[in-house]
Amino acid sequence: MLQGTTALITGASRGIGKAIALDMAHSGANIALNYIGNSEEADAVRTLILKENVRCETYECDISDFNESKRMSGDVLKDFSRVDILVNNAGIARDNPLLGINEKDYDDVMNINLKGAFNMIKHLYPNFMKNRSGTIINIASVCGLRGWEWQANYAASKGGLIALTKTVAKELAGRGVTCNAIAPGLIETDMTAKLTGSKKDSFVASIPLQRAGRPGDVSKLAVFLAGAGASYITGEVIKVDGGLCI
């Protein structure tokens, strides 16, 4: 389905990004795997990806840094010649009531979740323009659609990412490039592992499908959006939330 394409996925050493990398590789895409910090985790994912008989290279980079992300984009283009699929997945959360969110927690969340995606799109914009094809998938959140208590910084970053998605979809449509967002609800990853006990139980009880989502629930949609079957879909925000936002 994605044979011969190259996908660059940010924050792909674990969680949703890892699941997307593995599923895209399984569909035949070569993978440029971005991570920060833990090279052993990234190497372990690379080992799994190579079993799919596709190419995979790992790139350590703080995507919130304009120049670092520019360097990484150049390195990926040097290694793979082109990028067909960009998945802006890297993200962090620093949850607190707004009153308890300090300046650093606000800046860190905005810089990684929103500016990081902007940086990657900006640096790969010429690649997409020249190819006159490709797709960009931004991993947003239902928080960005509805707002969420204790997540003012996170929700603002994801709301911004949704607006960025629609803007890029309009700008690049004339070049045959699509841009969509996925808005996951509660997905079981390291990021949401803090939610435990009765708090988690009551949250899950509020989800119509009565369970938390799995990274694979999100990655299957990402693979679809990256494929030819989704070529007439752009500027959309698709929820993967078990019905939470109904």
């Binding site: 914009y125 010429p126 323009m129 700008e171 004339g174 070049r175």
Partner: peptide, 12 residues
Amino acid sequence: ADSLDIFQIISE
């Protein structure tokens, strides 16, 4: 060339 092409040329 449209405005995106011109921006791209300028950027290069």
